[in-house]
Design a protein around this nucleic acid. Structure first.
Lengths: 96, 96
DNA sequence: TTTTTTGTTCGATAGTCATAAAACTATCAT
DNA sequence: ATGATAGTTTTATGACTATCGAACAAAAAA
């Protein structure tokens, strides 16, 4: 197995770990279903977790390349990274 | 969120957990690349892990519905469950 | 300039996961 | 029967994960 294959495996493993959690699946669903952008706080509120836990999950998803965040003044807005979902999880968002 | 959705989430989480491990990705690749069936021992040997660890990984994959095993006399033969991969991970095996 | 809002980081904790040696079970060969 | 082979289960252990409160930082509002 080549080095590149190993690196690709690590990327996949990070993605699968990020998806293997109920709260994070819900976070992804909430973002997907919202038409416009929404803030981290709004997402955390919807699924009823503490803000520190929410922040931890956002970091996990961001590190896995599944979401991106954009800071605007007080708030931080979050959206899905369709490129990653498209490349590694084709069809996943529709089935979720 | 309905009960059925929650159960579906749990299935997906179990699958993602099963896939979020380097040894198990290799196991899946070895099985995929082998034309005929092969035994648990053969797979474990190929990726260089102890037989107890191998047994643990096979159980994890079996519980997630990703492989099936068939016992024949002394040996236990393993194969991928294409139905599960097709339903939850379309295209995954080709990209792995 | 205080106070409030939004989010991150730290510290503690309880739980889960991967690993392998050792003991065990079942089957086959001598 | 005895021994060898193939896998599972048990037990122990070290590493990682999810959770939340508390302390912190940055920016806006009062």
């Amino acid at each position: 197995m080549t080095i590149e294959q190993k690196n690709e495996d690590q990327i996949k493993i990070q993605i699968f770990k990020a998806l293997a959690d109920e709260s994070r699946l819900e976070i992804i669903r909430v973002i997907r279903d919202k038409k416009g952008e929404l803030s981290c706080g709004e997402v955390g509120e919807k699924i009823n977790i503490s803000k520190s836990t929410a922040s931890y999950h956002f970091k996990t998803l961001r590190d896995a390349g599944l979401i991106s965040t954009r800071k605007e003044t007080r708030n931080k807005y979050v959206k899905l990274r369709e490129d990653t979902f498209g490349k590694y999880l084709p069809g996943f968002l529709d089935l979720l």
